[in-house]
Every structure is written in structure tokens, then in C-alpha cells.
Design a protein around this nucleic acid. Structure first.
Length: 690
DNA sequence: GTTTCAGCGTTTTTT
DNA sequence: ACGCTGAAAC
């Protein structure tokens, strides 16, 4: 292996990626011996530093394929590898392009596939996404008769959440129930039994959920022989966003370190926002103690924003006394004083955001340099209406996920069947699409299809022949077409196979959904994406691990211009930045969410969430507080509450902002008279029916 | 015996 | 948009 002797770091001819770093960044990039923790505040050049470190390691002679770069999203992995790749183009062997990078789950998937036999897993195991797991839990619950206990039993998504959090936190279920789900405690026994049955069922079906990927990876690392074998292929593990790892992930990293890998963890405890997924900032705080001999480098120089904005962010951060001290210092001058805008309600807020976005656009700021951030995917509903009305193009990240749409799940079920003809859950879903087929007939047809084990491809036509007899005549023709397409898709490539299945599914989608034509466009987009994958199994698995985070990830919709506004949840905005950021719906009950006011720690997490939102802005930041908001955005009744500003926007924080109280829109401002104050205005059509 | 559909209440954040 | 319920439709 090529090992370079000289370190180029201190020479006058240091490579530009080192020359441009500040002293702390430089120290992190060229740290030589042992583990390293980089505490990188918002906007302090974290990505630059990680990329420089990857480049430096390669320059030092570490083979790129022996560097494992674990990131939080696929997008982050892509960006870092591209930037590091550009730095190391001249390195022997292709440089950073050969670095192994991706999310924990993607890396786990590769390893678990490679070691499937040792883990006692079928080679063709399938992956369940969170919704699939919830559906299977629901099924097991029904089989166990747990839905008839009389007392309200947790819903399937709650069940999935409970199960997942128990596994990811590696805490006993009872403890979790007592601390975080006291209203479910009475079902403790039933839940424990359900989750055991769920695990058994997954094994039976040959499926893994996302948590299982981590569990199996950890099992591999902790196994002396397998662990050594895996670690022998890795010299350096770099973990981005370490404040958002959970106990399982820490076990994996620590296991690799025990086998001799060197760990670099990068993160910022004040941006820990995934506690609901059992992540804990305690892991980054405990890193120096857990990883012996680890050095710590702190980055506090902020290159993103002006001091006016950082003063506000620092003031919010100062409300929390725990963790490492965090003060960001601006390196750039300029930037505006953040604005805090009080408006009437969310309709008013939407109009105001549109006005300001368009005004900035007039002054030359592209729409894509501006973003609107919100606590929940829901918060942008009214804004989306207003944007559409004004024909302002936008793309939304986070919120409603593509893969959860029913028609997409239908399609994925068919895709999965191509290489798993014994996939009971997928068959069930597909059969239900046929007209006149409900749970009972689907069950009976399924018994024929799967009689005596999964059907070998050669036997599929014969088994289908008996199964279709259970179905009403109106369903048979479409069923025939689907089965024929399944048979045909097995030999075709990914692209042709997906096309074929789409065509067979099309009439069913059109029949089932009123807006079938629109939904078919989604399937077309998925077909396009499938064409890029090696085969359909890989395609479906990768889709589950790295779901497209917006419709634009799938395909650029034809109505979009090349310039568009970004709408995002704060969670999905992590790690991103824009010239101008609008944070909407910053009322108490949303920041913090009313669901989260239970414990001190969950309120602290909400504060960090607001902090993440504020620190996304480079030049201009506007925070909106609607004075009145509606409990039911879609509700017909006018139920509303009176919103106070987020408690995190305390007087001392507000003092650092330009506070704007917008006059009520005159048309809407006329006060609604109290009932009885005047003669009621009535409408009657009775006379028409006299 | 089964499926289907209308009506009603509810919905945090995501790999 | 989804889950649950009860009643209509096949």
C-alpha cells in the first residue's frame, strides 16, 4: 500500500484545503493519533473540516475504501463525498470517490446482505419501512385478539414507535412505558407479548425492519470473528451528526473501535433534535470518556451568519444550562437584525411570507436562496395554498412522505413480489386491489398460492389457476394480467420489469383512486428511478433505506421552473443553509409542540429545534408569530386559540430583534360582533319548498 | 357471507 | 389523508 512519508500540513506549500482552514479546523483535519471529537457549532465549517480530514487521510496513505463515512442522510453523504472527491482528484486510485459512505442503515444493509448466511437470514430477505412494520404489528395484534380487550389499545403507529424506541434505546419496555408512555402502562403485558410475537413473525416471513438492520450489524460487530473480519477492512470511521446517534449506533461504533478502528465523531450537542428516535446528546457528551485517549476540538467561529443573528441564537442557547458551553462568534460582518413579525393568523402569515419572498426576489435573491421552515409538515398547508394561488413555485421537504401514499405502497408490493413470490404481506395488499376482493377472499386465494411453501417461479401459473377460482369473475382478468406481468418481469431488467408491472397495475390504480391519473405519474417517476438500479430487489431495499425526501427527488415536476422556494420541516433542514430564512408558526404550542411540554428534556429539545431553525440563515431571518391559530386547520368550526409567542422568544431574545406588529388586514379586521349584540343575519330557502 | 362506502374524528418530528 | 363504524349493496 502507498504510504506517504511527509505530512504536508505545516509546509508553506500546504494543499489549498488545509491552507484555507482556521487553526481549530486545521487541528481537526490533521489529527494524527487516536480518536477525535469535533464539536462544531452551527455554521462553523463542519463539512469543510470533515472533507479536509478525509482528503488529508488519503494524502497520508489511507486507502479511500478503508474510510467509512457515516452520515445522517443520503444527501449529506453525497455532498461530502463530492466535495472530498474534488479535493483529492489527483490522489492515486481515484481519491475520495472510493470512500465508503452513507447512512448507518445503508451501511448496515450492505453488511447484513453480505453476512446473511452467518446471521441465519435468507439471502432474499426484504426490508420493511416504518409503515410496513406498523401494518405487520397491526396484523399480529388482530391475530392475538388484542384489539378486543375493551380498553383503548395503542394505535398501530404508536405500537411501532414503542417497539422501535425500546430497541433503539436498548431499555426495557417497562421502563420506557413508565417514563414516556404512562397512558400505555396498563397494557404492559399485552405489549410485551405483542412485540415478542412481532419479532418471531418477522423471522418467519424473512423480513427485517429498519431497527433490525442496526441490531444485526451490532451483532456482527460484537461477534469476535465476524467483528474482526469487518473491522479489518476499515481504518477510519467518521460519524457526522454524532449528537443524533442512539444507543445501538454507539454500540456499533464502539465495537469497531474495540477492533482497532479509529473514530472521528463530529457534531454539536445543541443541535440534538432526534430524541424521539431514542437519540441522545448524552452520547456526544460522553464521547471523551467512552473512547479512550480521544482528543476534542471545538469550532466556534461562525462563517455563515452576521453577529445580529448569532446574538439571537446565542440568547436562545443560553436558556439551556446543560451541555458544553456554546457561543458562536461571527467572522463575517453584515447581515441584518432578525425580525420578529406578529400577524393576525396563519392566513395573514402566509400572505406576509409571500410578500416578503417576492420582494426579495425583486431585489435579485433567487427563490432557491430562500426557505420557509416549520415545526411540522402541516404548518405550511395554508402557505402552500397561497403560493399556488400566486403561482410561486416551491418544493417541500419532509412532511408527508412519498412512500406512505397508498398507491406507491401498492406498487412497491408488486415490485417486491418479483423476487419474493412467497411474500405474504405483499400478495395480500395486491389482491385487495382487485374488485370484489376483501380480506376473506384474499386470504383464501393466498392459501392456494402459498400452499406448501413459496411458489417456485415455474409453479406460479398453476397455483394462480386454483387461486383465481376464489375470486369473483370481475377480478380475474386484472389478476391474470398482474400475474403475467410478474412472471414477465422476473427475466426483464429493472427498468423493463417495472414498466411492465406499472402497466398491469394502472387500471387498478385508476379504478381505486379518484385521482388515479395523477397517482400514475408518481409510478412513472418511480419506474424512471428503478431504471438506475441494478435490479428490482436492490431498488426497493434502497428506497426503504433512503426514501426520496421530496417529490423533486423523484423527478422534477413539469410545472416547476428552474427556480423555486424551499419549504421544509426544521428536522429536514438540518445541515442546510439559505440566504434568507422564514420561520413560521413560532407560537407556544408549536415551539414547543404541545405534545412535548411534558418533561424538561423534551422542552429542551424543542428549544434546540428552534435554534437549528434560526441558525440556517446566512443573511436574513424572519420569525412569524400568528396571534390567533386554528386547532383544526381543516375544521369547519371556527375553533381557535390565542397564540402567544414561543416561550423561547423571551423578552431578552425579543430585545435583540426588530419586532414588527402588523396591522390587521383591514378587510378581515372588522371585529366579529358578539352573538346577540345585533340582529342576526339569517338565510332561508324555506320559501322555495313551500 | 362479504365487500364497499359514507360519515366522523384525528394527525410531531424521520433513518 | 387514515382508522373506525355501521349500514347498504352485491
Amino acid at each position: 500500500m502507498f504510504v506517504s512519508e511527509a505530512s504536508p500540513t505545516s509546509e508553506p506549500h500546504a494543499p489549498p484545503w488545509l491552507a484555507d482552514l482556521n487553526p481549530e479546523q486545521h487541528a481537526a483535519a490533521v489529527h494524527r493519533d487516536g480518536h477525535l471529537l469535533v464539536l462544531a457549532g452551527a455554521g462553523t465549517g463542519k463539512t469543510t473540516t470533515v472533507c479536509a480530514r478525509v482528503a488529508w487521510l488519503i494524502e497520508e496513505g489511507v486507502a479511500p475504501e478503508r474510510i467509512l463515512l457515516l452520515t445522517f442522510t443520503r444527501r449529506a453523504a453525497r455532498e461530502m463525498l463530492a466535495r472530498a472527491g474534488a479535493l483529492t482528484r489527483s490522489a492515486p486510485g481515484g481519491g475520495a470517490r472510493r470512500v465508503v459512505g452513507g447512512t448507518f442503515h445503508a451501511a448496515a444493509h450492505r453488511l447484513v446482505r453480505a453476512h446473511a448466511a452467518a446471521l441465519g437470514l435468507a439471502q432474499d430477505f426484504a426490508l420493511l419501512d416504518a409503515a410496513d412494520a406498523a401494518d405487520l404489528l397491526d396484523l399480529v395484534r388482530q391475530e392475538q385478539g388484542l384489539s378486543e380487550t375493551g380498553r383503548r389499545f395503542p394505535r398501530k403507529h404508536t405500537l411501532a414507535d414503542l417497539c422501535s424506541r425500546t430497541v433503539n434505546a436498548q431499555r426495557p419496555l417497562r421502563e420506557l412505558l413508565a417514563s414516556d408512555f404512562p397512558w400505555c402502562e396498563e397494557h404492559g403485558d399485552a405489549l410485551a407479548e405483542l412485540f415478542r410475537a412481532f419479532a418471531a413473525r418477522k423471522r418467519e416471513l424473512g423480513v427485517l425492519d429498519l431497527d433490525d438492520l442496526l441490531l444485526y450489524w451490532r451483532a456482527l460487530v460484537l461477534d469476535p470473528a465476524a467483528g474482526r473480519h469487518i473491522a479489518q477492512g476499515i481504518d477510519h470511521v467518521l460519524v457526522d451528526e454524532y449528537q443524533d446517534v442512539n444507543g445501538l449506533q454507539v454500540d456499533i461504533v464502539a465495537g469497531l473501535a474495540d477492533h482497532g478502528c479509529t473514530v472521528t465523531a463530529v457534531g454539536n450537542d445543541f443541535q440534538a433534535i432526534y430524541g424521539f428516535r431514542s437519540a441522545s446528546a448524552g452520547h456526544i457528551l460522553g464521547f471523551p470518556a467512552q473512547f479512550a485517549g480521544a482528543a476534542t476540538v471545538t469550532l466556534e467561529r461562525n462563517y455563515r451568519s452576521g453577529q445580529g443573528l448569532l446574538d439571537v441564537a446565542n440568547a436562545v442557547a443560553a436558556q439551556d444550562a446543560d451541555g458544553f458551553p456554546k457561543v458562536l462568534r461571527a467572522q463575517r460582518g453584515g447581515g441584518e437584525v432578525p425580525r420578529l413579525v406578529f400577524c393576525r393568523d396563519q392566513t395573514h402569515e402566509a400572505a406576509e411570507v409571500c410578500d416578503r419572498v417576492l420582494a426579495a426576489r425583486e431585489e435579485g435573491m433567487l427563490l432557491r436562496e430562500q426557505a420557509v421552515l416549520a415545526r411540522t409538515g402541516h404548518d405550511t398547508d395554508l402557505l402552500e395554498l397561497e403560493l399556488s394561488r400566486r403561482r410561486i413555485p416551491y418544493v417541500k421537504y419532509g412532511g408527508l412522505r412519498y412512500l406512505e401514499a397508498a398507491h406507491v405502497k401498492d406498487f412497491l408490493a408488486v415490485l417486491r413480489l418479483t423476487d419474493r413470490l412467497g411474500d405474504e404481506m405483499s400478495w395480500f395488499r395486491v389482491l385487495l386491489l382487485l374488485e370484489g376482493v376483501g380480506p376473506n377472499r384474499a386470504r383464501r386465494a393466498l392459501d392456494h398460492l402459498l400452499a406448501g411453501g413459496p411458489p417456485p417461479a415455474a409453479e406460479l401459473p398453476a397455483r394462480w389457476e386454483t387461486a383465481r377460482a376464489e375470486l369473483p369473475s370481475g377480478a380475474r382478468e386484472h389478476g391474470d394480467a398482474l400475474v403475467a406481468a410478474l412472471a414477465g418481469a422476473q427475466d426483464a431488467g429493472a427498468a423493463a420489469g417495472a414498466e411492465r408491472l406499472r402497466d398491469a397495475l394502472a387500471p387498478l390504480v385508476r379504478a381505486k383512486y379518484p385521482d388515479g391519473a395523477v397517482r400514475l405519474q408518481d409510478l412513472d417517476a418511480l419506474c424512471g428511478l428503478a431504471g438506475e438500479a441494478a435490479d428490482l430487489r436492490t431498488f426497493v431495499a434502497e428506497l426503504v433505506i433512503d426514501p426520496p425526501s421530496s417529490s423533486s427527488d423523484l423527478a422534477v415536476a413539469p410545472h416547476l421552473d428552474d427556480d423555486w422556494l424551499v419549504l421544509s420541516t426544521v428536522h429536514s433542514a438540518k445541515g442546510l443553509e439559505w440566504q434568507s430564512v422564514h420561520v413560521i408558526a413560532a407560537y407556544d404550542g408549536n415551539f414547543p409542540a404541545c405534545m412535548a411540554v411534558g418533561t424538561k428534556e423534551s422542552i429542551a429539545e424543542e428549544r434546540r429545534l428552534l435554534y437549528v431553525a434560526l441558525t440556517r440563515a446566512r443573511r436574513s431571518l424572519t420569525v412569524y408569530v400568528p396571534r390567533r391559530y386554528y386547532h383544526r386547520p381543516t375544521g369547519r368550526d371556527d375553533g381557535h386559540g390565542y397564540g402567544k409567542a414561543s416561550r423561547f422568544l423571551s423578552p431578552d431574545v425579543q430585545a435583540l430583534c426588530e419586532v414588527v406588529h402588523l396591522a390587521d388586514d383591514p378587510a378581515a379586521a372588522a371585529p366579529v360582533p358578539a352573538p346577540g349584540a345585533q340582529a342576526r343575519i339569517t338565510v332561508s330557502v324555506d320559501e322555495l319548498f313551500a
